[in-house]
Simulated assay, not measured.
Amino acid sequence: MNEFLIGNAVAAGATGIGAIPALIFRKGTHRFRDVLLALCAGVMMAAAVFELIPQALALSDFIMVSLGLTAGVLALTILETTVPHHHLEHGYGVKIDKKAMLIITAVALHNMPEGLSVGVSYGSGVEGLGPLIALAIGLQNMPEGFLIALFLIQQKVRMITAFLIALLTGVLEYISALAGYFLTSFADGVIPFGLAFAAGSMLYIIYKELIPESHGDGNALFATYSFILGLLAMLLLTTVF
């Protein structure tokens, strides 16, 4: 339990860690941002395809995994279409009005399925899976925190306020991780479904958000190599641990 609480806090708090470079440098190049996003996409892809899905299959069957994965994709689709959502990386340099808080709220809500994947991974009882997924999610959260902080700073928000807002976007992720962890503790049958659900939500984020955003400013080649590097890095971690 203590290991889960620590891992969950690190993953959820990574948005705050990612915000620090934005406070220091204040200006991030498109190439730097795109390479970072693609790197995290590779890490998440490896975690979903080589860890979450195989573990779900080992504990259940194809039908259960398919249902869980589809449910994860549909949950993110509903969230995407019902919550006001803006791509932050295309927003800086543009004045924002009352919708600013809606944008931050949308980002925070997108963290919920990520938190679920951390909680379910720890609750599954599979040795080493929880820390590995927490690491993958934490790495994905860091550029998100960077983008949020950079976006807010360019909107003339105080640096300390930008940092705190970026950090607070991980609160929902922490709560959803707790829910996922305790749910698996009471119902073992939900573990493979939850793992597949988490994989589906991660794959949705990768393909719908991270990859398109990393290719949007003419840095597709750099982003592609960064994606492969992230995938290989995660494979190395799975091999070592």
Rank of each mutant, 00 (worst) to 15 (best):
A12C: 07
A14E: 03
A14K: 05
T15M: 08
T15K: 04
G18T: 02
G18E: 06
A19K: 01
L23S: 02
R26G: 03
R26L: 07
F32T: 15
R33W: 13
R33I: 15
D34P: 04
V35D: 03
V35E: 09
L36W: 12
L37T: 12
L37K: 09
A38Y: 10
G42S: 06
G42Y: 00
M45C: 12
A46W: 00
A47I: 02
A48I: 06
A48G: 08
V49K: 01
V49H: 00
F50D: 06
F50M: 11
F50A: 08
E51F: 05
E51D: 14
E51Q: 12
E51A: 14
E51R: 10
L52M: 09
L52A: 09
P54M: 11
Q55K: 15
L57V: 06
A58W: 02
S60L: 11
D61R: 07
D61T: 11
F62L: 15
F62H: 10
F62D: 14
I63A: 14
I63Y: 11
S66F: 13
S66T: 15
S66N: 13
G68F: 06
L69W: 00
L69I: 02
L69E: 00
A71M: 06
A71V: 03
G72E: 03
G72V: 02
A75P: 00
L76V: 10
L76E: 08
T77V: 11
T77I: 12
E80M: 13
E80N: 15
E80R: 13
